[in-house]
Every structure is written in C-alpha cells, then in structure tokens.
Design a protein around this nucleic acid. Structure first.
Lengths: 325, 325
DNA sequence: TCGTTTACTGCAACCGTTTGCGGAATTGTT
DNA sequence: AACAATTCCGCAAACGGTTGCAGTAAACGA
C-alpha cells in the first residue's frame, strides 16, 4: 500500500501540508513557482486526494445513491445509464442498490446510503413499500431525494414520472381511432400510483365507447395466464400497461397461435425494447428512461444548489407505431 | 443536518467518546450496564457510524467498484445483480461505473475508484482496451481486481469467464442428438475472442456430421436479415451464439410465419431472459451471469482474506430445455 | 533608515472514528 | 489493614485532508 498523501508530498518538497493543499487547488496565496513544483511532483506520484478525508472535513461527498427494485428491469436500464452518465460527467459517483421489491432490504439499502454519507438519493420505491419513514429521515438529514417512476403519494417531495395519464390516454385514443370493439386491458399492481393513474386515464378516455375487460397482473406469468383465459372472450385488442405485462400477453398470444394484427391487435406502454423483439413490432407509447434519467439528474442538481422548491415533473410521451394495431 | 455522532452520544450520557465507541462494538472492557445504556440511546437516535471516518481511520472501506462497458446489456444484468446482492449481504456497497466501451472513460472510472478508496474492483474491460496500466496501478495499491467475462490477456490476475467452448459444444451436441440435418449457425463479431472460441468449438463438435451454414452478424438487425435470407435454403435448425442474435433470428422466423419447432428448430447460447419471451420457449445453453457473479464475489473475498493466489475460473454451462428443438 | 504594505507560507484546529495505554475504583487475598 | 488483581473507563494520537489566522521576509514609500 503505497498511497501518496499531502504529507508525503510536503515532506519531499520541504513545504507544509497546507501549502501543498493550496497549491493543488490553485489558491491565489501560493506563488506560481511553488504551484508548479507541487503539481509536477503530485502528477509524477499519481496523487489522488482521499475522498473520505475530504468528505469528513467538508461534509460534502461526491456520491449519489440510487435505490431501485431491480436493475434487471427493462425500463430502469436506460434510466440508470442516464443518471450514471450524467453523474460521472459532473464528478459524482453513483452507488446503485436494489431491493428486489423487499421493503426490508430497501430499508437496509437506505441505511447503507446514510452511512456512506451520500449527498443525494434517487429512489424508486418497491411494490410493497407503504412506510416512508426511512425516506423522511433522509430529508431530516438534508439529503435531497428524487423519486422516480414509482413514487410515493407524499406531498412536498420531488417526483419525476413518465406521463402516466397522457400515455394511457394516448393508447386509448389510438385504440378508438382504429375502430376497435372489444379491448382486454391488463394493468399492474393496484397499489401503485402508476397503475391507478394509467387505469383511470385509460378508462376515462374510453368512456364506455368500447367494450372493456380490465385485469391486473403482478408478473409476467400472471399476465400470460390472464391473457390466455380472456382470449376465450375474443377481444380484438389487448392493451398492456407495461413491458412485464406485454411479455406475458405476447407469450399467450403465441401459445394460442394468433396472428397479429389480424386475429388480435396489441398496444402497450413501454420503453421500446420488448416491443421491437417481435414481428410485427408492437405499437407502443414510449416512456423514455433515458429522458427521465436526465430530468432526474438536473432536478437533483437544482436541489443541491439550494432549491427547496419541490416539483413534480413528467416527460412527454410519443406513440411509436409498430404494426400490431 | 442533524447527524448523531459518538461525540453527541457521549455528551448526552456523560461518557467519553472512546467508551461509547467500545460499547457499541461490544468490547469486553465495557460493563453490560454501560453497553445497554449506550446502545439504547444510539438506537433511539438512529446512530449511523460515518463510513468515511471509519475508512479514514482503519483504511478499510466497505466499498467495491465495478466497471463494465454497459449495464444495459442482457448478460451483465444478472452478473451485476448477483455481485450487488452478495456485496450487500456481506456489508459492502457497490459502486457501478460504465465505460460505454470508451477506454478514456474507463480510465476515468478507475481513477474515481481509486479516489474513493475502494477495497476491491470487479472489471470487464471494454472492446477497445489494450493498455492495462490503470489496472496494474490498482495492484500496486493492493486493491484486488477480479476480471470477468471480457478479460485481458495478462498473466497473474484473477479471471472469471463463461465456459465458451463447453457451451458451444453442448449446443452442437444437442443439435446432433436431435438428429438435425441442416443448421444455420449465426455468430457475432469475428474480432471478439468470445466469437472465436464459440465458433471453433461449435464447428469442431459438428465435425462435418451435419450440413452447416455459418454466418456472422454484428447486430440484431443484421441477424434478422441474414436469417431471412438463409431461410430460403431451408435449414431445419438455427443456432444463435448470443441473445442479440437470437432476437434477430426470432424476428425473421416470425416474419416468415414459421412454426417452432415443427417448421424450424432454434437453439441458442443465452442468459435466459430472451428465450423465455417466446412460446414455445427457446432451448438454450445457459451462461449464467448470476453464477458468474457469485463466483467473482467469492474470489474477491478470498483475495481480501489475503490469498495472493491468482486463479482463472470458468463456470459450468447447463442446457435449459424450452420447446424449440 | 524606518515603518508599512504585499506576497508567501506555516500553525493548529477540526471532521468522526479507532485503539494503545495508563489510571481510578472495586474486589479479593493474606 | 495493606497490597495485588480485576474491572471499567478516559486521554490522546492518528487517519488525510481543509481553512482561518498569524507570522516572516522582501519590497516599497517617505
């Protein structure tokens, strides 16, 4: 273990630690000559300031935390990638933790974040989270929290969401426009606000114009089973609220040997990866994780700049036509 | 900002900082009574030891770094998930950084790791990395490095790899066993060692027993085009070296309206996610990122326990039967 | 020649924790 | 009652930086 520290440099150069520190930060008090000597030696010794010492002294860390149910999820990839990229560009590191939709682990993860003295947190709550104390504690510690995607129903916090209502309405309108008659609509876990929003906007837009079968699925497998069963009622269209559900529905459709879009039409709200796996590609309303990520990051930076103003942002949604409806 | 520290607790209890510190760690010098008083107060105050201070004092961090070209890749998901899970269970946090296959960013990421004083590094090098100085520097600092998947051709370092040859051979044997006659085999970019290994093992196992069409695709779209074209030569089986390729091949098969496995059989080497998206599910040789991750983690722990013994491990591969062949 | 300014640099405290060592209070031994 | 052995606890230094303040030497003006 061969770390170069300020002390080492100062010893080698016959300067004090403080002078070396200041020289490295280009402080006006230090003469050009000294600065040059210091930086040269520091470079040749591969000096890396100890982030822990800095955080300890200044109580400013360059670490963000990100907690999410699972990084192996279609949608979160792109979100995380975007946040990670922005963080790096701005000199921050990102600590990524996953809860596996287990609230107990989620709490543990938040604890780890606090221990590591992160300076900001991106959080997507798990399906089962009803107690937000751990998040509120973050606020007590002045750690800004940006909720994304699955957000709690709390006031006074920063939320970045996809345009749930608009997306669902857009999908519904597309179905109406295509003159469909009988729709099977599969939504996710009823506890989630995302589900509630999409469901209400969807049904409201439909407004009884079309025969509507609404179901809820908590997983891909459930979605497959539901689809398979409902297929007997011969819907002409299936709407899927998410990628997980779409994957299940598609499997059922393939199993039943139905042809898209002739036998049945499909439309989904999605990130875009899964829909492009099939032929014909599935028509979907895009919810871009990438855009959401950048939005979340800039929101974080605003918080760190001292903005106490909490905001709820949504991204705009776009219809991407495949050939499935 | 309302952090509870040892000092605060000691002040409240009229004890010294050191006593509190020892009480919290169950040190034998401290009486049970005192221990109890201290832990109770600490609990009620939500005391979280400052990880930075600990690292500074003990020079032991609870942080691992993980650098990878992209987390948005089928295979790395499960690997990262596994490492992350194991890390958490063992009290470590994981800092995940992606390079986007850019060596310059890769170097920056490694620098960030050093600054953060990680105690170990998991690394998958980018396609373009030919200079390993930054990695060697890690070794100078006594930071163990576990290379995974794409590993450098260096001696004396820990490498964890997928069993490329064995997987390809297993797929080939399965095809032979099923008595297939004409196989379209699609591989990836010829520059990658992974492609070379899989290709040579596959063809060697086939050993002229079966009519073989070999093609290379650099992307999902290319794979689709190739498949579509080759379908005219009526192969009875398609082998896909990777998930990207499988996705393309499947799209072509759907476009052509072929039925699996009657019209055509499909087998792939995969992580398991994509194959399960279709019905029937695609039979594949599993290259488990999950297992690889756990292997990498235990290898890391061995290093931290002082093992200077470097090893090159490969995972065993398993055939997962869908219904596609 | 003698204050006074200016340009550099160093001292020392501090962030929160760990830990070797020494000291006080308590108990046990003759 | 005197002394040794235990228990229990606190002092202080250290980890690697940052930063307010003070000190020194050179340069300057009068």
């Amino acid at each position: 273990m061969n770390n170069t520290t300020l002390k080492k440099i100062s010893g080698l150069l016959g300067l004090s630690i403080s002078t070396v520190s200041r020289a490295l930060k280009n402080h006006p008090d230090i003469s050009e000559k000294t600065k040059q000597r210091v930086t040269e030696l520091a470079d040749s010794l591969d000096y890396e300031p100890n982030a822990n010492a800095i955080q300890l002294r200044t109580s400013k860390s360059n670490l963000f935390g990100l907690v999410v149910p699972s990084i192996s999820n279609f949608f979160y990839h792109s979100f995380i990638s975007a946040v990670e990229e922005e963080s790096r560009k701005n000199g921050y590191a990102l600590m990524i933790l996953q809860s596996g939709d287990d609230p107990a682990i989620e709490i543990l993860n938040l604890k780890l974040c606090r221990k590591s003295r992160i300076s900001g947190l991106f959080a997507c709550i798990s399906n089962q989270t009803f107690n937000f104390d751990a998040y509120l504690k973050m606020k007590d510690l002045d750690i800004p929290v940006i909720f994304f995607d699955k957000v709690p129903e709390l006031n006074n916090c920063n939320k970045i969401c996809v345009a749930d209502e608009a997306s669902a309405a857009m999908a519904a309108n597309t179905i109406i426009l295509k003159n469909k008659k009988k729709v099977l609509a599969i939504f996710g876990n009823t506890n989630l606000s995302i589900t509630k929003k999409r469901l209400s906007a969807f049904t409201k837009t439909m407004d009884g114009k079309i025969d509507l079968l609404v179901h809820h699925a908590n997983s891909t497998t459930e979605a497959e089973a539901i689809t398979l069963e409902c297929l007997q009622q011969k819907p002409d269209t299936i709407f899927c609220m998410s990628d997980e559900i779409l994957a299940g529905a598609m499997k059922a459709i393939q199993r039943a040997g139905l042809k898209i879009p002739d036998d049945i039409a499909v439309i989904a709200i999605s990130n875009g990866f899964i829909p492009k796996l099939y032929f014909p590609e599935i028509t979907y309303v895009e919810t871009s994780g990438d855009e959401l990520g950048r939005l979340a990051f800039s929101s974080m930076m605003a918080c760190l700049d001292g903005s106490t103003f909490t905001q709820e942002l949504t991204t705009v949604s776009v219809l991407v036509e495949g050939g499935s409806i």
